[in-house]
Simulated assay, not measured.
Amino acid sequence: MHLVTPRSASTTAPSDTVLLGAVDLAREVLLEQVDATDVGAATAAVLEGEHVVTHYFACLRAGYVGWTWSVTVTRAVDSDLVTVDEVVLLPGEDAIIAPQWVPYKDRIRPGDLSPGDLLPVEEDDPRLVPTYSFGDDPLDADAKAQVRQVAKDLGLGRVRTLSPEGIDLAAQRWHDGDGGPDTPLAQSAPAKCFSCGFLLRLSGHLAETFGVCANGNANDDGRVVALGHGCGAHSEAQLSKKQQPLPPAEHAHDTLTSDELETL
């Protein structure tokens, strides 16, 4: 076992020989909570601060490779009576731990929703803004209810609409996706979507950047595509001479009579 002084500990804190020597007490308390077969040798004693030391023991429990038992002890300033603060099982650098929790709404991917599934957006979703607003100040619950009522009364059709941030996120996602200009399909295309007769232009902020493919024979039919995207189903695509199918051979006429066939 060795003594470790962490950087966070005070450099002026004196070495506490009483707490550093309380290895047996730390192990005894640890064995009251876990099986003896799960506890290995003492590996370190860390001086956490004045009158606070943590003793570490190797963890031998199956499935916990790289983990360490931690027992923190302390004592009063004028007393040699050692007391235990906590017993914790901690992961080391090589420990196998569960991945960081990702909320369900952040794990959803396109195609995951089934019929009947609901994915409500948060009230303060930055991708959406009220269709009709009283100003730029944050709205409380009552004000938001009034905004929705005004939008309904005005017949705007939608209580909320895309915010500039929501538009930018969608544009970046579409640009980087399968309908963007950098895909292998687009790079090998004879021409770009902006000159294709099957392109339906979007309206609004994205009109000069994206459209929807309306070619039923194309891979992107019904999908948003960047104007710099392209594919082999472009309306003006032409086959080169070497790509054109060979014309059928001329018909061969059999002129032999049955008599001539017998003499062969």
Rank of each mutant, 00 (worst) to 15 (best):
P14I: 12
C59S: 06
R173Q: 13
E86T: 12
E28T: 14
H51V: 05
L113T: 08
V212Q: 02
P91K: 11
L162W: 08
R223T: 11
A45E: 05
D106A: 13
A189I: 04
A191N: 09
H175D: 11
H205K: 09
G228Y: 03
A186N: 04
D136F: 07
R27E: 14
G21W: 03
F194Y: 12
D220W: 01
T131S: 15
P120A: 12
G230R: 00
L118R: 14
I167S: 06
V18Y: 02
P138L: 04
I167F: 15
A26R: 01
T161S: 05
D38C: 04
I108F: 12
L169K: 07
L246E: 13
T83P: 01
L31C: 12
Q244I: 03
L261G: 00
F57K: 02
L128P: 00
V224R: 00
Y56P: 01
G21L: 07
L47C: 07
S195I: 05
D35V: 05
E93V: 15
L200R: 15
D254R: 13
G135Q: 03
A42V: 09
G204S: 07
P99G: 11
H234M: 04
P184E: 13
E86P: 01
G177D: 13
D176V: 06
H229Y: 11
Q172S: 15
A226P: 00
D142Y: 06
H55C: 05
A189H: 01
G66D: 04
A76I: 07
A143H: 03
A237P: 00
A62H: 07
A41M: 10
G40T: 06
A237N: 11
G222E: 08
R75G: 04
P164L: 08
L202N: 03
G232Y: 02
R127L: 14
T131C: 09
P190D: 04
L3H: 09
L25F: 07
Q149S: 11
G197V: 02
V87E: 01
Q33A: 13
E50K: 10
L199H: 01
L118G: 03
G180F: 08
A95S: 15
H175I: 05
T257I: 08
H234E: 02
L47I: 14
T37S: 11
A26Q: 03
P103G: 06
Q149C: 02
D136H: 03
Q149E: 15
K241V: 10
G179N: 09
K242D: 10
G230L: 00
